[in-house]
Amino acid sequence: MKSHFQFTNQQRNGIFLLLAIVLTLQCVYWFIPFDSGITDIENIENTNKIKGFKKEIDSLRLIEIENKKPKIYPFNPNYITDYKGYTLGMSIAEIDRLHKYRDTNKWVNSAKEFQQVTKVSDSFLETISPFFKFPDWVTNPKPQTQGYSKSYSNSSKIKTFSQKIDLNKATAVQLQKVYGIGEKLSERIIKERHKLKGGFVADIELSEVWGLSPEVIERVLNDFTVKTPRAINVYNLNMATRDQLVMIQYIDYEVANNIIEERTLRDGFKSLDELQKVEDFPIKKIDIIKLYLQL
């Protein structure tokens, strides 16, 4: 053992030198940050990437919020429903004022008149009025010359069935002779007639043409009527199946099921008007639906 712990002066100096080198390297390792510059650069790059990701996420979120907003298309304010008014931002009182005004068979013909009826604020009217779309005969009324007024007064006389023009054969030029019918409305009437593939069944289908007011329809029917109705399938209301009922315009499967249930409870319908008692029945379209039914 003694021989292992006895060193010469040269060996002792070598050991001390080795210990000094080890301690120096340890101090250098612990107290000098070799990679501090690299770490700072990496941190800056990571921070910039995170900021970039946040901006991208924020932009995507804004796009999604914008897409979820209900899009507003041009519309006639006279036909605003409860749901339409709610989505536009109208209050219940404002919607009710419009409906009460329309129930008197009056029409709103300008943005100013719309505000007078509904009492909406100026800021709301400024936002929504650019989307108002009124019929052509309101926005671009035909000038009433003396000759036109005279011809209109003559045509306002009640005509017999034989004197009237067949609505399914009337041309755009003939239709435009009616006060309130312009180029676009006459095109819509003819387009609706072609869409039905055979023409109108009855005069009531003229109400399906968008933009025709009841007053204009009345004037049209003073000179025109359906003389050559298209052939349709007419079903017995008390015997029609669900699949037959859904073939009728405005009746879907849910309404067809409700009709059959109501028919069973009543032991058969006694009148077509009793359809108004059916749950979810489109009452406003009953006159058109009745064209396809009989008892």
Results as ranks from 00 to 15, higher is better:
137 W>E: 11
94 E>M: 06
44 I>N: 12
86 Y>A: 09
80 I>Y: 01
83 Y>Q: 13
45 E>K: 15
136 D>G: 10
42 E>M: 13
122 D>W: 10
48 N>V: 15
95 I>Y: 02
139 T>W: 04
89 G>W: 02
130 P>H: 01
121 S>C: 04
99 H>F: 09
84 K>D: 10
41 I>F: 11
44 I>D: 14
55 K>V: 15
39 T>I: 15
133 K>C: 09
70 P>E: 01
84 K>V: 12
127 T>Y: 07
49 K>I: 15
100 K>N: 12
76 N>A: 05
76 N>G: 03
71 K>Q: 05
35 D>S: 13
48 N>W: 14
58 D>V: 06
29 Y>P: 13
118 T>E: 04
50 I>N: 11
79 Y>R: 13
121 S>K: 03
60 L>N: 08
117 V>E: 02
84 K>L: 10
126 E>P: 03
40 D>S: 13
87 T>H: 06
112 K>D: 10
109 N>A: 07
59 S>P: 05
68 K>P: 07
134 F>T: 02
107 W>D: 06
118 T>K: 01
122 D>G: 10
34 F>R: 14
86 Y>R: 05
70 P>T: 03
123 S>G: 06
85 G>S: 00
49 K>W: 14
39 T>A: 15
100 K>E: 09
56 E>H: 13
81 T>G: 03
121 S>F: 04
36 S>N: 15
70 P>V: 00
77 P>I: 02
38 I>K: 12
102 R>D: 00
119 K>D: 06
63 I>Y: 12
65 I>M: 09
90 M>I: 01
126 E>W: 04
88 L>V: 04
128 I>G: 01
73 Y>T: 09
28 V>P: 13
44 I>Y: 14
105 N>T: 07
58 D>I: 03
102 R>F: 00
71 K>D: 05
34 F>Y: 14
68 K>S: 05
31 F>P: 09
118 T>L: 01
97 R>P: 07
102 R>H: 01
41 I>Q: 13
75 F>A: 03
99 H>S: 08
73 Y>N: 09
77 P>W: 00
100 K>C: 07
39 T>F: 14
139 T>N: 11
40 D>C: 12
28 V>H: 11
44 I>A: 13
104 T>Y: 11
97 R>T: 06
123 S>Q: 05
127 T>K: 08
50 I>Q: 12
81 T>P: 00
50 I>G: 10
133 K>D: 06
134 F>E: 02
70 P>C: 02
88 L>M: 06
99 H>P: 04
105 N>Y: 07
85 G>C: 00
34 F>A: 15
133 K>R: 09
52 G>K: 08
63 I>M: 09
99 H>W: 08
59 S>R: 10
87 T>Y: 05
35 D>I: 10
35 D>Q: 13
96 D>I: 06
119 K>I: 06
50 I>A: 10
89 G>D: 00
57 I>Y: 14
132 F>D: 01
103 D>Y: 06
44 I>P: 08
136 D>I: 11
88 L>D: 02
101 Y>L: 02
72 I>N: 08
130 P>K: 04
122 D>E: 07
91 S>R: 05
116 Q>L: 08
31 F>G: 13
119 K>P: 08
80 I>P: 00
89 G>P: 02
41 I>K: 14
93 A>Q: 13
100 K>G: 11
127 T>F: 08
93 A>S: 12
102 R>Y: 03
65 I>L: 10
60 L>Y: 08
124 F>N: 00
39 T>C: 14
74 P>M: 06
